[in-house]
């Protein structure tokens, strides 16, 4: 980090861009290998066992041409890469639309879900972590710690199922699935409808993020509470809350930012499962469909978008560090 500001912001951005290109290349190759080496036959997945058995040679050849299974994988990948570089992500085989269009639509749904979960988990986890750390070993700390440990060890999809069962089936507070009410014209769907459908998946998704960020924040707060400057603040008669807001939170902010942006990838991973359980038509669900349906262009497109998003999150965290940490900021000014 420090070399970035010592050299120049432009140099750092250039380096990051090169890194991003390498990440995208690697992610696309790995996803492609996985989808083309997968034991799932895309044609069988598409038409079904019976459909495949009843298919004549001619139709099968057409399907082979459509799914590209008649072309050697390396050539197929190169074809895809050639188009991708020119900005064409190809056609989704399952949705029969350009990949860009599918991703755009799913992305909008998922973004709302993930952003809500991300912000919510960030705020709640930070507050819980600070409380637990400041009152280390108190009853409050034990409750928060155990709550976080239980959540951290519970699988996301299981939590999603429980939430669905309790809130949608038994209590009937939230809808059972989808991003909009059924039987309502798209034009008539209100923002409240969308938020109502978003609430339970977003809450469930934020739970996993809360656990790890709470525990990490707690550790950091305990470290800070043991620092000499906290001892000195106490020796100067500072009361607990001014000390917490003035020193503890200030010094926990930097690691909290790192944690928060690092959690983007976790939220992304979690969204795949949560969307599946809640039948939420987002990127995660599309990724699952693309994966088991052999839709290589869509899967690659989604993988690349996710990689870019996570990468962007980390980049943003680094840039924020530069803005917030006086050590980095001041070195930049000095050079």
């Amino acid at each position: 980090m420090s070399s970035f500001w010592q050299k120049s912001a432009a140099g750092y951005l250039l380096k990051s861009t090169v890194r991003l290109v390498l990440v995208i290349a690697a992610v696309s190759v790995i996803s492609f290998v996985l989808v083309s080496e997968s034991p799932i036959d895309p044609i069988k997945a598409y038409v079904g066992e019976v459909g495949l058995a009843n298919m004549n040679e001619e139709t099968y050849a057409k399907f082979q041409a459509y799914f590209g299974t008649d072309i050697p994988p390396v050539k197929r990948y190169l074809n895809w890469a050639h188009d991708f570089i020119r900005g064409d992500m190809g056609q989704s085989l399952l949705y029969r639309q350009p990949v860009t269009g599918v991703i755009k639509e799913k992305f909008a749904n998922s973004m709302a879900l993930m952003a809500l979960a991300w912000v919510f988990s960030g705020i709640v986890a930070f507050v819980l972590g600070v409380l637990a750390g400041v009152f280390k070993n108190s009853a409050l700390d034990k409750i928060i710690k155990n709550y976080a440990l239980v959540l951290a060890s519970a699988p996301t999809f299981w939590l999603a199922l429980i939430a669905l069962m309790v809130f949608s089936v038994w209590l009937r507070i939230f809808p059972i699935g989808f991003s909009v009410p059924l039987g309502v014209a798209a034009a008539d769907v209100t923002v409240w409808d969308s938020l109502y459908h978003l609430a339970l998946p977003a809450l469930t998704l934020s739970l996993t993020g809360i656990a790890s960020i709470t525990l990490h924040t707690r550790e950091k707060v305990i470290d800070v509470m043991g620092e000499d400057y906290i001892l000195y603040a106490r020796a100067r008669g500072q009361r607990l809350w001014p000390m917490v807001t003035g020193h503890v939170i200030r010094n926990v902010t930097l690691p909290a930012i790192t944690l928060q942006f690092a959690s983007i990838s976790e939220i992304f991973g979690g969204s795949v499962l949560v969307e599946q359980v809640f039948s939420f038509p987002g990127l995660g669900q599309a990724a699952v469909r693309a994966g088991i349906g052999g839709d290589a262009p869509l899967l690659l497109g989604i993988a690349i978008i996710s990689a870019a998003l996570v990468f962007g999150g980390n980049l943003l965290a680094n840039l924020l560090y530069g803005l917030i940490d006086p050590k980095i900021r001041r070195q930049g000014r000095a050079s």
Binding site: Y232, R236, G237, Q238, L254
Partner: peptide
């Protein structure tokens, strides 16, 4: 009641200052 007002500490080293806070406000105790 008295610490920081009638009984004050001059600590050992720079680690007794908050690393992310400017020196002035720290001396002024806000």
């Amino acid at each position: 009641d008295l610490r920081g007002k009638r009984i004050v500490l001059v600590p050992q080293s720079v680690t007794y200052l908050d690393p992310l806070k400017k020196v002035g406000p720290q001396v002024l105790n806000d």
